[in-house]
Design a protein around this nucleic acid. Structure first.
Lengths: 201, 201
DNA sequence: GTCTATAGGTGGATAGAC
DNA sequence: GTCTATCCACCTATAGAC
């Protein structure tokens, strides 16, 4: 397997599962070891055996999240679809998180950025940079194969896309209207879709 | 003046100023009465005279923020510019907050939504709804006067714009690159600008 | 790996004097 | 309006037994 991915015991993994959901709903500062302990049914102090400090827990959380996100991107790359199809899939990735009543972990942590341990800040930044790079390459590909018709440099468009997705998640939740996500994001795809394929309005 | 806007003493207003900056940088759960007291140079307990609970403070914060935002929108409406110019101004509103090393108060509170007092949740939701309504009307106007060429329903485009702006702020800060905001937002304007005026690529 | 017990700190909030 | 003093709940984290 992957030497960079530490093998963890069952309790540690369940801790991460619980902490992940809490961080995605309440924020990293919005939950405590006590919440995890209650959910897991073990004593609060026992948790420190697996992750001595909350910063340790947070770093492990981000590492696992980034790894699984990267795997999802690789899955899209392996789909063989054109850039338009891949972009649709990429957007669905976000939507799936939202309908599970969560926000993107990194969107959440980005809001809390200034209160985050230094290690986590770097991880959050890298997550967005990786996403941006991946989307930028996708947009460039779409331009070449003519399945997308970007009206701005690929890098800028990529930033816009990631921004819109992250923003749409947060807004959809605070408006208590999950459907808002899809309607916020639809115009991005509509604008990017090659005009040749679109009906004139 | 305005009967709905309560007249407050000097200390109360300074409290709001300090709390606002703290909430926009660290989040509503990221600061305490102790932080405000230190900055203000008075005892922590004295603050409760002006805002008995933190929820009271939060509601006042949101009220003032919404009022001033609405005033800014009215200012844009009074500019006499076309829809494209107004949209540019609207985007600059966000940019100005970011270069002051802050995030949008509501973008921040939206991330913390699930931990917010009930009263504040309603205020956050209304803020976004008002913004969406205002931008949607603007997009519609742009379509009529042909300064904008939206490729999707005005309401959806409005949601996309607000999402992209809120998302771009958060991402720009966590990438520690304020210039990222402008480049993330540029494609939105570029796509919306009437094709007639654009050079072909 | 899990437990109990506890330390040391900070949070929001109150009482009552001035 | 501001102060000191204080309360209690909660936080992260540690010590040491089992």
């Amino acid at each position: 397997m992957d030497a960079t991915r530490p093998r963890r015991g069952d309790t540690a993994n369940r801790m991460l599962d619980i902490a992940e959901r809490l961080a995605q709903t309440r924020g990293f500062n919005g939950f405590s070891y006590s919440d995890i302990a209650a959910d897991l049914g073990i004593a609060k102090a026992s948790l420190h055996h697996h992750f001595p400090t909350k910063a340790d827990l947070g770093r492990a959380l981000m590492q696992r999240y980034s790894d699984s996100f990267e795997a999802a991107l690789a899955g899209i790359d392996a789909s063989g679809e054109d850039a338009y199809g891949r972009l649709s899939r990429y957007m669905k990735l976000y939507e799936r998180v939202l309908v599970d009543d969560r926000l993107c972990l990194c969107g959440m942590l980005a809001a809390e950025y200034s209160t985050l341990p230094a290690g986590m800040r770097v991880q959050v930044r890298r997550f967005f940079e990786k996403n941006e790079d991946w989307v930028a390459a996708l947009v460039e590909r779409g331009r070449r194969e003519k399945s997308l018709r970007p009206g701005a440099p690929a890098r800028d468009v990529a930033r816009m896309i990631v921004s819109a997705l992250e923003g749409a998640m947060v807004l959809a939740r605070s408006c208590e209207d999950p459907a808002r996500f899809a309607s916020s994001v639809r115009p991005v795809l509509a604008e990017l879709k090659a005009k040749a394929v679109r009906k004139n309005r």
